[in-house]
Design a protein around this nucleic acid. Structure first.
Lengths: 222, 222
DNA sequence: TCGTAAGTTTACCAAATGGTAAAAAAGCGA
DNA sequence: TCGCTTTTTTACCATTTGGTAAACTTACGA
C-alpha cells in the first residue's frame, strides 16, 4: 500500500499532516456551522482551507469523517464546564459559575455551538451513540449532585435535568440564534446584558427560601 | 399561456389545488424540519406527499418557494402569543400566560419550531427581511409595554428583550433539542416537568420584590 | 356527452457534487 | 545528490438533484 494517511490509525503524523489536518478542520468548522452537513460542499471546505478537494480527501476519508471528527472534539470541550462542577463546593456558586462559563463559551465559540445545534436539530444522526455514552452518564452524575444539594436545603428545589436544559438553552441561544438576536438588538453590547439577565434568572431560581417566617433580607442584589 | 397555477397570483384556487398545496406543505414541513433546506430533496417531499416530483412543481415554482411559503405561514402563528399579551392586563399573569402558550407550542408544533430554528441557525438567509419588518416592530412594541410595567413597579426589573430571549430559548429547547432531551429523560413525561420548572423560573424572576423589610410571605409555591 | 382547461405522468437534461486514478511535484534521510 | 516516500495536482467519473418538455389523463361546465 503506497499511501494512506487518511485511514492510518498508527504511526506518528508528520508536521505537514498536522498542519493541514488542523487547517481543514478549522475551515470545515466555519462552513459546517453555517450551512449544516448537507449544505456544505467539499469544494467550499477546500476553498476555505486553501487546499484542493482531492488533497482534502488525502487527509480525511470523506466529508462524513471530517464532520464526525469535529463533533467528537467538540463534545469534550462542551462538557468541560460540566465536569468542572465541584460536588464539595458551595452549591449556588458552583452552579452560577457553570452558567457564567457556558455563556462565555457561547460568546467565544459560537461556531461550535451552532455546529452542535445543527446536529441535534436533525436528530443527532452522527452523534446519538456519543450522547448516550458520554453525555448521559455525566448528566446523571451531575443530577445526583444537584439533587443532593437540594435535599440538604442548600438550593431551592429544582429538577436537575430541567435546570441544565434551561441553562443550556438560555446561554446557547445567543450563539445559535445570533441572526435573530442581531435583528432585535442592533449596536448593543449583547453579552453584558445577557450576562446580567441570565445571572439574575438563575440566582433567583436557585437561592433557597428562608426557612421560617423571619423577615431576613435575601442575598439578592439590591 | 396554457397552464400555470404555480405562478398565478390571481384567480380563486380549485378544490384540487387547495388540497394538493396543503398536502405538499404538510409533507415539506415534515421533511424540511428534520433535514433542513439543503438536506431535503424534492423527491423526499414528493414521496411524503404521495405525488410525483413534476406534479409538485406544478403547484410550486420550486423548492425555494415551498420553503419560503412555510416560513411565512409559520412566523404568523409563531408570533400570535406575543400579540396576545394585553398591555392592560396584570403584568405577571400576562407574561406567565405567554410562557405557558409558548411551551404548549413547542410541544404541539415541534416541527414548526425546528423549521424556524434551522432557518435562523443558518443566518436567516430566506427570512432576514421578514424578521426585520414583522418581528422587530412587534418586539419593540412589546418591550415598551414590559418596560412600562417595570417602571410602575409591577414587575421586577428586567431587560425586556433578554427576557423574551430566555423565554423563547427555554420553551423552544424542548422541540429543537428533542434528540438530546430524549437521551437524558427517557420514558418520562417531559412536558409536565418542563412546565413546572419554567413557570418557577420566570415567576421567581419577574415577581417584584416586596418594597420594605416586612417579612411578608411571597406568592411562590412552597 | 363533448370539448376545453386543469391536473398528472413519462422521459429527459444540465449542473452540482462526492469521490477516484494516476501522474507530477516536493520533502527528506542517507 | 540520489532515491524513496509523502504530498499535491490534473483529469475524470458516477450519482444525485432541481427542474423542464410534452404527451396523456381526468374533471367539469355547457
Amino acid at each position: 500500500m503506497p499511501q494512506a494517511p487518511a485511514a492510518q490509525a498508527g504511526r506518528k503524523p508528520s508536521r505537514i499532516q498536522l498542519r493541514n489536518r488542523k487547517r481543514i478542520l478549522e475551515a470545515a468548522l466555519e462552513v459546517f456551522s453555517t450551512h449544516g452537513f448537507r449544505g456544505t460542499t467539499l469544494d467550499q471546505i477546500a476553498a476555505e482551507a486553501g487546499l484542493s478537494k482531492p488533497n482534502i480527501l488525502y487527509y480525511f476519508e470523506g466529508k462524513e469523517e471530517i464532520h464526525v471528527t469535529l463533533l467528537n472534539q467538540l463534545l469534550d470541550a462542551w462538557l468541560a464546564p460540566l465536569r468542572a462542577i465541584d460536588p464539595q463546593g458551595e452549591p449556588l456558586e458552583e452552579l452560577m459559575g457553570y452558567v457564567g462559563r457556558k455563556l462565555e463559551m457561547s460568546r467565544d465559540l459560537p461556531r461550535e455551538s451552532r455546529l452542535f445545534a445543527n446536529e441535534i436539530l436533525q436528530g443527532a444522526p452522527r452523534m446519538g451513540p456519543h450522547l448516550e455514552s458520554v453525555l448521559k452518564p455525566l448528566v446523571d452524575q451531575t443530577a445526583a449532585v444537584i439533587d443532593g444539594w437540594v435535599r440538604q436545603g442548600r438550593l431551592a428545589p429544582v429538577d436537575p435535568r430541567h435546570l441544565l436544559f434551561s441553562i443550556w438553552a438560555t446561554t446557547q441561544h445567543y450563539a445559535d440564534f445570533e441572526a435573530q438576536v442581531g435583528v432585535l438588538m442592533r449596536d448593543v453590547d449583547v453579552h453584558t446584558g445577557a450576562s446580567a439577565h441570565i445571572e439574575a434568572l438563575f440566582r433567583r431560581l436557585l437561592t433557597p427560601e428562608v426557612t421560617a417566617g423571619s423577615g431576613e433580607t435575601r442575598t439578592l442584589g439590591h
